[in-house]
Every structure is written in C-alpha cells, then in structure tokens.
C-alpha cells in the first residue's frame, strides 16, 4: 500500500469534509433565507468533494475500506485537515472569512492539481475547481461587504481576522506527504501557492478597507494529526451512530 499517497489524499478529503461539516451547521440558522441556502450549497459542495477524495483513497487503502470507514472510523490523530477547517463557526463574519481564506487556498491548489499525473485526482480537481471558484467569489464579496458595511460589521470581521489569521500559515506549509506527492507528480507543493494566496487575500482585504495582518506566529499541526480541541467534538458528533452500532447498514 502506498501510505504516502493515501495520506495525501486523506488530507485533501479531510479538509473538504470538516469544512463542509462546519458549514452545514448553519443550515436553518442563517442570517437571511437566501444566504442560508447559499451556505448550505457550499457545504454540499464540500461533502461532494470529500466523498470523491475518500473514494479514491479507499481504493488505495484496500482491505474493504470505504468512503464511510475512512470518514467515520478514524480518530482525531488520524485526521489530516488543516486547523482552519475545524475552528468553530462563530458569527457570520468568522464563517465568511474562514471560507474566504480556504477558498482562495483551494482555488490555487485545485488549479494546479488538475495537472496531477494521477488521473483520478486531476479529474476531481477539475470538477471541484468550478465549485470553489464560486465559493471564492461569494466569500470575497461578503468579506468586502462586511468590511465596508457598518461599523458593527467592520468590528466583527476585524475580530474574525485577528482570530483566524494565525491559522492561515498552515495552508501553504507542506507536510512530508505533500512534498513527496509533489515530487512524484501527483500532488501540489503548497509552498508554491504562498505568494499568490497572500496577494489575492490582500487585494480583497484592501477592498474591504481592512488592514492585512503582519505574518506573525502561526499555528500548525493539523496536517500531522495534532488538532485543536474542537475536532474531537466534531468527530464525537459526526461518528456517533457508526461507533454506537458497529457494522450496521444505514
């Protein structure tokens, strides 16, 4: 079994799943009906991407692995998503900004991943890129709206910026399996996305009349299974039925 390739794909899948899961928590509680529908759509796209990646990972894992065994039967230490994906939704500003940071990253990542020599990954990237392009546009507009909206919205997005910024460093800080995936031609060296990401993010923040934070100390560890306290709660909730009734069909 190609463990490094498996880890790489699981990392992509976990990012999509955990962020999708977080976004799905908004369903029924959005600030206005139209945006409730919009954020649920984004959550659905994430779940769809996760399923595609897990299915691809399952063929490598073998041993009867399925998309569900990978999503529902691994523990916190096995999950390889970036910390940014798992931080709580907070208010609408925090959710929007988290989505924006992530979409900008996924947009650049999937664009390059289309060149993967793994046909399946390239195909998933191509399909996902269309979805992410929309997420990026939608979230950029909201960041601008909130930054340049009212005094309150400006304060809130400013707080979100302060809170989330330290989690953005990990996005373009490659783990061992990413470097290996890149040198073998099926993955992307995310450190090569850093300057593009920073430039895109800066231009939107500027349009939102927000100051781009200094790049200070950054949190990391998610890609290696060292998570925030939040992921444990996400998994406890998400995996409860699979854990309580082992082997059951649903």
């Amino acid at each position: 079994m190609d463990t490094i390739r498996l880890n790489y794909i699981l990392h992509l899948a976990d990012n999509a799943l955990i962020l999708g899961h977080r976004n799905s928590e908004w369903c029924g509680h959005g600030p206005v009906l139209e945006q409730d529908i919009a954020i649920s759509n984004i959550a659905l796209d994430g779940l769809g991407q996760a399923r595609n990646f897990y299915q691809s990972a399952a063929t490598i894992a073998g041993n009867g692995a399925t998309e569900d065994s990978l999503a529902y039967l691994r523990d916190v230490i096995d999950f390889k998503n970036c910390l940014l994906a798992e931080v709580p939704n907070g208010d609408w500003a925090q959710t929007i900004l988290r989505q924006f940071f992530f979409s900008a990253y996924q947009y650049l990542l999937y664009t390059k991943l289309q060149q993967s020599n793994d046909g399946q990954l390239a195909a998933i990237a191509e399909k996902s890129l269309k979805e992410v392009s929309y997420h990026l546009r939608w979230s950029s507009e909201w960041v601008i709206r909130l930054g340049d909206g009212t005094e309150e919205s400006r304060t809130r997005i400013g707080n979100a910026l302060e809170f989330l910024w330290p989690y953005t460093g990990e996005l373009c800080l490659p783990a061992g399996y990413e470097l290996d995936a890149a040198s073998n031609g099926y993955g992307v060296d995310v450190s090569s996305l850093q300057s593009d990401w920073h430039q895109r993010v800066s231009s939107v923040l500027e349009e939102a009349t927000l100051a781009v934070p200094e790049t200070g100390w950054m949190q990391s560890g998610g890609k290696q299974g060292r998570h925030t306290e939040h992921l444990g709660y996400i998994l406890a909730e998400m995996q409860y039925l699979q854990r309580a009734y082992p082997g059951a069909e649903w």
Binding site: E34, Q35, A38, N41, W138, E141
Partner: peptide
C-alpha cells in the same frame, strides 16, 4: 447578490 441568490 440577486444573481448569486437566484443561482442558489
């Protein structure tokens, strides 16, 4: 926003 909402 109206166009995007209509899309969704």
């Amino acid at each position: 926003m109206a166009i995007e909402n209509a899309r969704d």
